[in-house]
Nucleic acid binder design. Structure first.
Length: 578
RNA sequence: GCACCCGUAGCUCAGCUGGAUAGAGUACCUGACUACGAAUCAGGGGGUCAGAGGUUCGAAUCCUCUCGGGUGCACCA
């Protein structure tokens, strides 16, 4: 049930009727007709712009169309009054029974808010995909939280979602990892080692070194890379992926697929993807122009194998093979996305860190080329996270080892706070994360505000039970006993939920869910406090059990929607605060 | 030099495929608990939506340019 969609459908029906009457010309496009909640409550419950968007093409004044439309609309018994306002808005006031229907729908229909927007379409959401060279840090955390919430949101909106992690275990960085593990291995054998050549000095590798010693004894001591590199690389990436899985568990993230880059090599799959592009005439040998501006010091013209990504909106063509014939990192990425298309996904989403911004166009170009423009790829970039402690910026440095890890963050503030806070911002806006503020249990901390609303509802319900009021079956509550303006406003807010879900899902913007939940909680806290001034608005009416049941039905519905919303964000709702 | 993202109240940020008088929080000021959690609520002041043009019934939103900030820019992933 989506009340806004229902009313919009009714408006379209009325417009069709006006067309049949000959009032409107045939063949009009009603696509721009919208139904929105008005910003100002005095403008009624819903507003439509129908008259204004049609005025020009029809050649009539907006108010003339509005009047004709209003005449049709008032015939609908859900609509109690229609008012023409401003330049031609139609403001609708809905019958109180409509809001009762919303509350009932929330309580009785587990699918309230869910949408068939996705229509079961297969959607692949790839996120995190951090290199398997160490545990996840704060930057990864944002992408993790965002991608996970987005995936849940899309599933809620009716898509068949696959959550996927691409393991970059095929490039030079895993060789570096292997050498670093080897150094720790030597160290475990009592040797003094130094970390040079960009090897990873992180302490998290100490255990990997020790474990390797347990596994192979001293077999690799004093041996050259040709003996141990392959083995240690596999050993190291497995160890690092185990750490990363621990981090994902800590945040409550469950991936459906871990896809290995390495699995693409030596199996002909990269070649197959490139062959596909070649058949489309998009692969050629050529030499790129030097970049404008600052020239790299060792620049020299080189002939490479290039992908004609400029045919699909990229700025320059991109190399897929190095001059020595080896694949660039782009080639396996092409093959990986080719595989996603081959697996039958209708749409792809990649969640990257902001430092991959320059990679977006070529990836989109590749997917467009491989799928003949059929499979859309949306790339969401998550901006940087700035950490603060005691109001001071908390600098991260890989070298100094003051890198904040996901596990430290979650241990400090908990997964729920981490998730909610990172979702109260658009993905493409930088994010401040202040340790002191987010651990505070106050209005500064929206997650507690929302949780508090939910806890309040359950507190009331507990109290009602103590009073001996039966709240086990609220479906028979007489909701006409809770029709104060403030109570109807609460129900109206609930009616927006399915609409918010659709807007958020269409835009791939999970932060809208977080903001809506905050608004909904605010509405509940407000209604609660109205009870201070107006005793008839208190939820528990000792001398009026039917009214109490109606009011509890209303706020119970609020807690249900909060549960759904927090569920999308990956946060567990609470019934009690402590 | 080029590309992408961003610029909204003192501060941190929302703002729906273009809609009505641009909204929250925070800070500041004034009020509200003999009810179920005051971890809350109500009210007030605070804006050239970076700037300038353009598109139209209507622009914070779309287009162009300028200014300011971030990120990335051939055989690194």
């Amino acid at each position: 049930m989506n009340l806004f969609a229902d009313i919009r459908a009714t408006i379209i029906d009325c417009l069709d009727a006006l067309t049949n009457d000959g009032f409107l010309p045939t063949g009009l496009d009603f696509g721009n007709v919208t139904v929105d909640p008005p910003r100002d409550a005095t403008h009624g419950d819903m507003a439509t712009n129908a008259a204004m968007v049609l005025a020009k093409t029809v050649g009539l004044k907006p108010r003339v169309i509005a009047e004709a439309l209003a005449e049709k609309l008032v015939e609908d018994d859900r609509i109690s009054s229609v008012e023409i306002a401003g330049p031609g808005f139609l403001n609708l006031v809905l019958d109180a029974g409509v809001w009762a229907g919303v509350v009932n729908a929330v309580l009785l229909d587990d699918n309230f808010g869910k949408s068939n927007l996705g229509a079961g379409k297969k959607m692949n959401v790839e996120y995190i995909s951090a290199n398997p060279t160490g545990p996840l840090h704060v930057g990864h955390t944002r992408g993790a939280v965002f991608g996970d919430a987005l995936a849940s949101l899309l599933a809620y909106a009716g898509f068949d979602v696959t959550r996927e992690y691409y393991i970059n275990d095929g490039g030079a960085q895993v060789d570096v990892l292997a050498r670093s593990v080897y150094l720790r291995y030597l160290e475990a054998h009592g040797q003094a080692v130094t970390f040079e050549d960009g090897t990873y000095p992180g302490e998290y590798l100490i255990k990997a070194g020790e474990d390797l010693k347990v596994k192979v004894g001293d077999a690799y001591v004093g041996q050259g890379e040709d003996v141990w590199l392959d083995e240690v690389r596999a050993f190291g990436t497995d160890a690092m992926m185990a750490l990363i899985r621990e981090d994902l568990d800590a945040l409550g993230i469950k991936m459906d697929v871990f896809y290995s880059e390495k699995s693409l090599y030596g199996t002909g799959r990269i070649e197959a993807a490139i062959e596909d592009l070649k058949n489309k005439g998009l692969i050629y040998k050529g030499t790129l122009q030097p970049p404008k501006g600052k020239l790299p010091e060792d620049w020299e013209p080189r002939e490479q194998t290039l992908f004609k990504s400029t045919d699909f909106g990229d700025d320059v063509d991109r190399p897929i093979q190095k001059s020595d014939g080896a694949w660039t990192y782009f080639a396996p990425d092409i093959a990986y996305h080719y595989d996603k298309i081959y697996r039958g996904f209708d749409a792809l989403i990649d969640v990257f860190g902001a430092d991959h911004g320059g990679y977006v166009k070529r990836m989109k170009a590749a997917v467009a080329a491989l799928s003949d423009n059929v499979v859309p790829l949306d790339v969401k970039l998550t901006q940087l996270v700035k950490l603060y402690k005691n109001g001071e910026p908390f600098k991260m440095s890989k070298r100094a080892g003051t890198f904040i890890m996901l596990r430290d963050l979650v241990a400090e503030v908990g997964p729920d706070v981490t998730r909610f806070h990172m979702l109260t911002r658009k993905n493409d806006a930088p994010l401040d994360f202040d340790f002191d503020k987010v651990t505070e249990q106050s209005k500064d901390n929206p997650v507690f505000y929302v949780q508090y609303a939910s806890a309040r509802v359950h507190s009331v319900i507990r109290k009602a039970v103590e009073m001996g009021i039966d709240v086990s079956d609220l479906s028979c509550a007489d909701l006409s006993l809770a029709t104060h303006t403030a109570e109807l406003a609460m129900a109206a807010k609930l009616a927006e939920w399915p609409r918010v879900v659709e807007i958020a899902a269409k835009g791939h913007e999970p932060h809208r869910i977080a903001f809506y939940l905050y608004d909904l909680a605010s509405e509940l806290h407000g209604l609660w406090n109205r009870g201070n001034d107006d005793a008839s608005l208190r939820f528990l009416q000792a001398d009026n059990i039917p009214a109490t049941q109606a009011k509890i039905a209303l706020i119970k519905a609020v807690s249900v929607v909060i549960s759904h919303g927090l569920g999308i964000l990956g946060i567990t709702p609470v019934e009690e605060m402590r």
